[in-house]
């Protein structure tokens, strides 16, 4: 078969009436995808809110009860409480935005994209916040009468935690960027003949 003939066969598909998009099914699939993203976002928010409010509360209460007068520790506790409350506020804004979404295919699409962007921002902010908390904690620990073993254990815990959160961010949020770079490399290799 000549290539011209193949093209003729190929062109028979151009009749638009031969294809139908089932809009209802497309809408359902996008909605299912959106719900998956929503669940993940909601889970991350709840973990961050609870951990910040609880940890901040424990730090403040324990230092106030001991009457330690440790300004660094109290500031860190207060900062964690503020961050927890701020994420709670952002969560309520997001839920409000979700409820106002247009119930069309495009409305759902836009909402799913907004949620993914929101999660990336949240994850990036938390990595920087984590560094501040580590700095405050280490300052407090180093100025206390804790043993060297305790200091090493606390440092190790923070280092592992920090790298785990970076790994999570890279693995799930920056994975798409890696895919693009891989694709570019693949294209370059393919055409280096």
């Amino acid at each position: 078969m000549e290539f011209k003939e193949m093209k003729k066969i190929w062109d028979t598909q151009n009749d638009e009436a031969l294809y139908v998009i089932n809009e209802d099914a497309l809408h359902r699939r996008i909605k299912a995808k959106k719900m998956g993203t929503k669940r993940k976002t909601s889970f991350s928010e709840v973990i961050l809110i609870v951990s910040n409010l609880c940890a901040g509360g424990v730090v403040i209460i324990s230092h106030l009860l001991k009457n330690s007068g440790n300004v660094a520790a109290l500031s860190m506790g207060a900062m964690m409480m503020i961050v927890g409350a701020y994420i709670l506020f952002m969560r309520s804004q997001r839920i409000k935005r979700d409820q106002q979404t247009d119930v069309s295919i495009l409305g759902d699409l836009e909402n799913a994209i907004e949620n993914i962007n929101y999660r990336i921002k949240l994850s990036q902010s938390m990595i920087w916040f984590c560094l501040i908390v580590i700095a405050f904690t280490m300052y407090t620990v180093l100025n206390s009468d804790k043993s060297l073993l305790n200091i090493i254990l606390i440092s190790g815990f923070f280092i592992i935690g920090f790298f785990m959160s970076r790994w999570e961010h890279k693995r799930f949020n920056l994975g798409k960027k890696k895919q693009l770079l891989d694709l570019k490399e693949k294209l370059i290799n393919e055409f280096e003949m």
């Binding site: 598909q13 009436a17 031969l18 294809y19 139908v20 998009i21 089932n22 209802d24 099914a25 497309l26 359902r28 699939r29 299912a32 995808k33 719900m35 998956g36």
Partner: peptide, 18 residues
């Protein structure tokens, strides 16, 4: 798709009448 998401695949998005 993510297997944790319950997706109704009984209805397909594209239908070819070819």
């Amino acid at each position: 798709q993510d297997r944790h998401e319950s997706i109704d695949v009984s209805q397909h998005i594209i239908e070819s009448h070819q």
